[in-house]
Design a protein around this nucleic acid. Structure first.
Ligand SMILES: [Zn+2]
Ligand SMILES: [Zn+2]
Ligand SMILES: [Zn+2]
Ligand SMILES: [Zn+2]
Lengths: 159, 159
DNA sequence: TGATTGGTGTTATATTTTAACAAAAAAGAA
DNA sequence: TTCTTTTTTGTTAAAATATAACACCAATCA
């Protein structure tokens, strides 16, 4: 993926923040860029190591956690809580129109893919919530399994 | 909830383990009982404190984590990874027939409810996975929002 | 300008989870 | 039964993850 793509994504992220009255500061943009360039989930301390190497040798965990907290609020980054890792959003448009997404996590190669939740599914979910008198605020749906490259009886092509 | 209910659940859990060729040992049963009696999610250290108070003053974290790991494998307990808490399964029958469940987590009062995923939804999900050439191995679907008792403009009745 | 808010730097600490190895208990074979 | 193997537990230590608190700086606004 050429760097220009990532620059585009960063630019769009910045505009998104402006529209919601927030600022994509230097520290936040750096963390986002690391995640975009990684193209795979990273732990907070993975991020810290890269941040230190590229920007500020003495950076502290708080710097990373603060940026991550902000980026998650903006749906620019997602927390894979079952893995204690963070990944850049793969469907920013979906969030813009308030649609749900699902995160497919490969147990073999570690790759993740974020895909929109089909409309039919989304509606059925809404009904399910309504039946249980539940008001959804936010969700991050994590599915664990094997990705297209790591199907049973094959070796993973990534890694 | 009378203690006999919990005894029943424990008994069924024991039988479930036997059927799958595993053992619900004393330590495992104690941890499961604490979760069943709590009827709400507990952190590993909440569990440890109760375990120490009720069974072994000098018990160590590993005791709890080992039991939790086993109970999760048996789908007798679920890990709410976004909260770093553990909760006893509320739909053992669903797992027995290999159906998915969703966990509705109330952000206000902390209560959780596990409900089966409607068949329609389950099928739609399967199709979605198939389209993305994804083989599901396991999932724990966490939805964050407000439960029936904590709807907007009301105070929560639990707590 | 002063006042207010939001963001960062820094230090320290809390919380959650796992590694490693020895001892004990249970299950299985002879 | 006794011997062997596997599973489970006890114990110690450490790793990995996340947050609290407070002082300082920067941007926004009256
Ligand atoms: Zn996303
Ligand atoms: Zn894979
Ligand atoms: Zn369950
Ligand atoms: Zn509630």
């Amino acid at each position: 993926m050429p760097s220009s793509d990532i620059d585009t994504q960063l630019h769009q992220a910045k505009e998104h923040c402006l529209r919601t009255g927030h600022r994509l500061t230097a520290a936040r943009a750096r963390v986002l860029r690391i995640l975009l360039e990684a193209s795979q989930p990273l732990s907070a301390y993975d991020l810290l190591a890269q941040y230190q190497a590229r920007h500020a040798k003495g950076a502290q965990p708080m710097t990373i956690y603060r940026a991550l907290h902000f980026l998650q609020q903006q749906s620019l980054v997602h927390h894979l809580s079952s893995r204690r890792q963070y990944v850049s959003c793969g469907q920013p448009h979906a969030h813009a129109r308030n649609a749900l997404t699902q995160l497919l996590l490969c147990e073999n190669c570690g790759q993740t893919q974020e895909v929109p939740l089909p409309t039919l599914l989304s509606e059925a979910l809404q009904q399910s919530f309504h039946r249980h008198a539940f008001t959804l605020q936010q969700s991050e749906l994590e599915f664990h399994g094997l990705c297209a490259h790591c199907q049973p009886s094959k070796e993973c092509a990534h890694a």
